[in-house]
Amino acid sequence: MNRTSFRRALVPTVAALALALTACGGNDGEGSDGEQISGNVVVDGSSTVEPMSKAASELLSEEQGKIKVAVGAAGTGGGFEKFCADKTDISDASRPIKEDEEVPVCQEAGIEYTELLVATDALTIAVHPDLDIDCLKVDQISKLFIKGSKVKNWNEIDPSFPDQEVSFFFPGTDSGTYDYMAADVFENESEELRSDVQASEDDNVLVQGVSGTEGAVGFFGFTYYEQNSDKLKALQVENPETGECVAPSVETAQDGSYSPLARPLFIYVNNKKYNDNKAVAAYVDFYIEHLEQIATAAKFIPLNEEDYGTTQAALEGIA
């Protein structure tokens, strides 16, 4: 009950904050001059980025009712396939376009595009607050979570860890969070995690499970951990490049040091469509202008000022 009302209160607060911030930025207010643009915008790609593209469409529809935005979720790879076949105007992606496989296809079709960084997606591995472990290496995460793992006790992955039985609380296999952990965090050919776990589609159930079971471990999106940080203990993760343990936070996710559990999210814009189709231009401009509000609504970490500046510069470079 409490949570719902908290969420309800959160949405307008965030919206008001974002509006106030954009007002401070002294934007030229393209939508406010009342010019109604009509046209189609086709967006497809990563189902992770999809909520952002939908949020942008939802906000835009309040100002520009005649722009028809259709958003699909064919996956990052499927999205690029359509994008490079000139079937879509914008492609959502949870990784950069592949230089060796996807870029040549786009080039052959003569499609010029611009990559825009829009937000950061971060996972948090959380454990029961009393567990005496602070930092995990990537290969330890792999041992613990990978499909077919036989690890039942924390001290099996590191003798210095306490003698404590592990219980697992994972998001359902359909969720984007699961996909991220299974496919992109450590080497995992099967792209599946161990199945002897308590799985739930509902993040609340995971939080309750992890906070109420000794030795429990689970993972969810960082923004969700943030809201429940009083009941959970977030594990630091050793950055494979620097060898340092990094705690999850907005800052470490934004600057890339919380790797590999944080990843950048992109949209790719077809330059020609942006210049020829006023609806595409209006949508992308609006998207970037309200980026913080959109990222927050979709439960991602917004860009820091420096990255936002880069994205704005890239947007100006299209025209």
Binding site: V42, D44, E50, K68, V69, A70, G72
Partner: peptide
Amino acid sequence: VMVGIFVSVRFDPASLTDMAS
């Protein structure tokens, strides 16, 4: 899914060549 029907559109389909969910 194969023919690319969208997850989200914010308008009502009005003709056979409209995008739809």
